[in-house]
């Protein structure tokens, strides 16, 4: 699913966020990326989603080389990736279901199918009763769940979550981790970056540790 070979990312100004990182994430795997803040977790997520381009090495996602991707091809790559952000990036000028409908509108679903899918996604995150509510009226945990609903509504094969539980208390956080587990069991590849060790679900989940941009083994 995702292959990194000697990937480095140097930002303009000289800051090196990732140094010679090589790793493989298999299809259907669930992976935690951990490390202190500034270790390069967010950069790794951004590189996989083609929000940033690597300055060295190659990244392959879904058999597509990110570094060589044409600008016009990026949107189609992203439609197969569900992105979950720490700051949710919800749109506050529309209600809950309209937020979830946005990816479907972009992908060109017809109104009827889109509404059915959006409700199914809201149901999965437990927000079906709030579909007409406005995001401002939701709690932090609910906003994060809404962000997750928007990420999974187009049934992507890859979920990328950047610090999804960063702003949540532990109860909400474990709720959300349970959700990710469920998506993974349904066959979705899940990559979660977090600096919160308590959020990492116990069990046999693989953990990738980053330290100052380098992979720790």
């Amino acid at each position: 699913m995702i292959t990194l070979a000697h990937v480095s990312k140097r930002y303009p100004g000289g800051y090196e966020a990732l140094k010679d990182v090589s790793l493989d994430i298999a299809n259907g795997e669930m992976v935690f990326v951990t490390g202190h803040s500034g270790a390069g977790k967010s950069t790794l997520i951004k590189l996989i989603a083609a929000i940033e381009r690597p300055t060295g090495g190659t990244i392959t996602v879904n058999r597509q080389a990110i570094g060589k991707l044409r600008r016009g091809a990026v949107p189609y790559l992203r439609r197969n990736i569900g992105l979950i952000f720490q700051d949710h990036k919800l749109l506050f000028d529309r209600n809950v279901i309209q937020n979830v409908l946005l990816p479907l509108h972009i992908a060109g679903f017809n109104r009827h199918d889109a509404a059915a899918r959006a409700r199914a996604a809201l149901d999965k995150v437990g927000l079906l009763q709030r579909e007409k509510a406005h995001p401002v009226t939701l709690s932090g945990g609910e906003q994060q769940r809404l962000c997750i609903a928007r990420a999974i509504v187009s049934r992507p094969s890859l979920l990328l979550a950047d610090e999804p539980t960063g702003n949540l208390d532990s109860e909400y956080a474990s709720e959300i981790m349970v959700m990710f587990k469920a998506f993974n069991q349904a066959g979705t590849t899940v990559v979660i970056s977090t600096h919160d060790h308590s959020a990492i679900a116990a069990g046999n989940t693989r953990i990738i540790r980053l330290d100052h941009g380098s992979l720790q083994t």
Partner: peptide
């Protein structure tokens, strides 16, 4: 601006 940025992140083409 927010709408444009989010749309971009979830796979909107420049045309869209």
């Amino acid at each position: 601006f927010d709408e444009i940025e989010v749309s971009r992140l979830i796979g909107a083409t420049s045309g869209y």
